[in-house]
Design a protein around this nucleic acid. Structure first.
Lengths: 116, 116
DNA sequence: TCGACATATCTAGTATTCTTGAAATATGGA
DNA sequence: TCCATATTTCAAGAATACTAGATATGTCGA
């Protein structure tokens, strides 16, 4: 995770609709939700939601996958974990034996992590 | 942590100078840094830094304390923890036995937490 | 109390971001 | 192929945020 991606990710989360979307997808769990259902759930116009979903995607905070003509979105826990690791990097001048493992548990048991 | 404070906090972290400041203070540890030294370290004008420090303060991401004529700033780990808890609240529809404890360790051993 | 130092506040010009109507792209079924 | 559905892209006006010069406030030492 570099500084540019981090800034973009925090910027993505600093807007109400997008923060609502991310938290909604966290609640939805690994099953995720279709783009249209997300827009309906939050009462946001479809094209506005599309723009906001794209911003969350580029920020690596969510992922998507086409299923027929609908597109399913899921929270990206690997992404958020990378972001938070960057945020508290070199805590206290860098005592890896104390600080590095702190974020290792930031994934709910019901999510599968992909890489590590 | 409510939605307004969260949005403000993410907005605070979405600006390069402020993200740099927060990460610098995380690295600095409990000792923190004086406002002027922070501005010098990051090559930012004094009044601009003052404005940015105030934004981080209001976002509950840092704290300050006057020492003579200087003011010492520290990262606020309780604040960031509250923010992250809010972000992944009700993970997977809310299975507290799996998801709630995930953030409990998000404090470096070398920091003292104040309340819980 | 006076001057120097450390930091904060005010103001305004510039730049960036948000939303939306309109139009385009992609998919599946008849 | 033609149409309906699901979603994305484009363009522009409105709103918001960033920076910096000037100035104000607070603290210490002489």
């Amino acid at each position: 995770m570099d500084i540019e991606t981090s800034l973009f990710a925090f910027s993505a989360l600093s807007q109400k609709t997008r923060l609502d979307v991310f938290r909604l997808l966290v609640k939805a769990g690994p099953e995720g939700m279709f783009a249209g259902d997300i827009a309906d759930a939050l009462g946001v116009r479809q094209n506005t939601m599309s723009t906001n979903l794209n911003i969350l995607l580029r920020a690596k905070l969510i992922r998507n996958e086409r299923e027929g003509r609908a597109i399913r979105y899921r929270a990206d826990f690997d992404g958020i974990r990378g972001l938070l690791s960057f945020l508290v990097e070199d805590c206290c001048g860098g005592n890896p034996e104390h600080c590095a493992p702190l974020l290792d548990t930031l994934v709910c048991d019901c999510w599968e992590t992909e890489n590590d």
